[in-house]
Design a binder for these strands. Structure first.
Lengths: 231, 231, 231, 231
DNA sequence: TATGAATGAGTTTTCATTCAT
DNA sequence: TATGAATGAAAACTCATTCAT
């Protein structure tokens, strides 16, 4: 099914629909459709805030019916959590590839992490929403599934950090990752403001409270790594 | 009973209301009522999650009418932001008093901050909600007011930190406070989970991703302060 | 009873709902449901004033859920505007049929119009509400749609008038219709009073200000047609 | 009390207020304050739609307290009905003065009436609101009072019309006034549209349904008077 | 599998009016 | 008389999710 075929089926004949909206029998086809939904959701999310996105918007973009969406994702939140996992995974992969290339000083690593995550806008946003919004109404099964995938992602990343940074001993990679996560979540929320707050924070007497995400993260990580010590 | 008395206060005893709903004419009396609302809101918030609290619950607890609430707070969020300001203020005062008593090592300060904020459950919760929830639907005026009060609170605290910690130079107090804020916000959200997620994270293979707020904050602050360097 | 059946339809008998709330898949079925809602709204409107009718009342009468209502009508006002269109259409049809039967004198036409619209109570009421109430909170799309349907209704009616009345030249049918509309709207509002005002206006010294709808409209139309001249 | 003194009393000392907000003992003083409220309401009404005006806005402009307003007008509607009476009275006076100057042809009278009421924007608006909005929630007493004042206004106007127009016999002045009222009410509502509807009606295919107030009224009156005949 | 019609819970805020002071 | 704090009713609409077809 090509992009061009999607959306063709507004009020056409039943027969035509049957052909186009072909049953997805094979696992590969299912996975492809899942990816398609994720891709469209990502595209929409890059244009609009999470709170302004409706399931309806996503299915409309996908060319699917409402019910079909729920065949692929148990809830709206689950979709965005999956998006988070994807974004996090690809960022982890990128970082791990970087880490492998050399031994890293705290300053180098701080810059690498702060700079690269700063540029992953969607990842940052999703991390900012993760706890308060996305995980808020999750059932046990989805939660377990999500957290397990997260764990799977984190482990090699933690290991890579331990290898790359001479100062890190066993376990330090994970510990650092947790701190990094807290910092990113906190800074993202302090930093991403709606237009109203943005204008208010632009006032000179308040701007000291409105840090720059990248700079602040880099500085914090640098101090953190410089002063690093195991528990 | 005259005609005039008949329609007085249909659905509740007038006498009982007399005490509670007395007109508050003087500014002091108005301030007292505002405090009363805040106090009741705080009491309810200590028993229930923010998302489970309705304005109705608060007015019921205060014995006031719905409309009266909005005489004192423009929105529900504004009330909780005021609560945050109060909690933050009293915590800042406490910390500043502590800081004055001696010169502090990074380890001592990290413990002091992590331990004391860990025990300020309401403050922690409110900080966790601050950006994503409370500030989300704020008009320009309320936002400005809130941020200005926040700035007023932060300045002496920043100064006190600069005095207490030998390693801090001018400006470092504020910079540190921002980082502390981000960490608290992030850790609070990672840490405070609903029952569903709590159970899931209790699994041994996932527990490494679920830090202990106090310990994690203390360790992070210790590394941060140990490695502290100005921009 | 299997597990699956347990949670089906908590607060009402499933069986009863089955009939009413059946999924309407075909366009005809959808149209039928729309008509059903309109019919129930009309029934309620014949018993109660517009301002005493809630969307809730209508959905209760139709046996549907709140949300279903909004699947068929974008707003409460849109529903009543649709009702107006229906009532107007059927009145226009009736009048046009009458007009065709003969050539009409001003007196005959005045009587026909005044008498027949006087008996279309719902149409009269709706016309009285149309501008101040129903059109007040209309979005551009609904407004356009409504006005276009109105135009479609008016055109043949205007043509029929021009044919029936020898004195009418081209364009006079539409011009007359506009005047008739203004008169009906104004007289309806002067005439339809709540019980309070009705009692007051019943006083002999005030009754001269409280015309009889039918007589007043007939007289006005008669003068109007007798003195008719093109711009 | 001059204009300059009003509004001075924001949060000043009690003593100062006492002086300024002097008790209005004499009937003249009361009447003057009533006029002041009316004047301010009129000023606001010339800038904003009725539905966007709050009692609060009026008392703020007047420099009075909320409660004081209700010492002078039983309801918000009563205020606007009083405004209507004032506007109507002064329009009637003007017209009566004109009528006295000569004998009038239907064409002259139609033009005079249509043109002059077209220019009385507030009067037109209030007539448009009169039945559906202002009289909607009126108690018997206010209603009686309003209608009696209206009758007092209408009688000389009706008489003046009978004198000015040769074709009018006894009673025709009142009958004509009623028709004029209905037409003005209807045309005003057809004509005054919010921005949304205005844009829609601007479409060429719909504009035939959106008459020009003045022209339409003049034409209708001309036909009406030309064809005038007593019941 | 896919569809899309049906569901229905969920809640803040406004503002005319009253009445204790 | 004047004040302004207190009152409290009032109601439309959204949208994630389900499930009959």
């Amino acid at each position: 099914m090509t992009m061009g075929q999607i959306n063709q089926k507004t009020k056409s004949t039943r027969a035509a629909q049957q052909t186009l909206a072909r049953r997805m029998r094979s696992p590969e086809a299912k996975a492809r459709r899942r990816e398609h939904i994720l891709a469209e959701a990502s595209r929409i999310f890059s244009q609009r805030a999470y709170s302004d996105i409706r399931v309806q918007d996503i299915v409309a973009a996908t060319g699917l019916a409402k019910g079909t969406f729920y065949l692929y994702f148990p809830t709206k939140e689950a979709l965005f959590l999956a998006l988070l996992l994807e974004a996090l995974s690809s960022w982890f992969v990128m970082i791990q590839n970087q880490l492998k290339t050399q031994s890293w000083t705290p300053a180098q690593l701080s810059y690498l992490l702060a700079h690269s995550i700063h540029n992953q806008d969607q990842l940052r946003q999703l991390l900012g929403l993760m706890h308060n919004v996305l995980e808020a109404s999750l059932d046990a099964e989805s939660a377990l599934c999500f957290k397990q995938e997260l764990a799977v992602l984190m482990m090699p990343m933690a290991a890579a950090l331990e290898t790359a940074l001479p100062a890190f001993g066993p376990g330090d990679g994970g510990r650092f990752l947790l701190k990094l996560h807290a910092l990113v979540v906190g800074l993202e929320q302090m930093t991403r403001t709606g237009p109203v707050l943005a204008e208010v924070m632009a006032r000179p007497e308040l701007s000291f409270m409105h840090p720059n995400f990248e700079g602040e993260l880099e500085h914090t990580l640098l101090c953190l790594l410089t002063g690093w010590r195991t528990f």
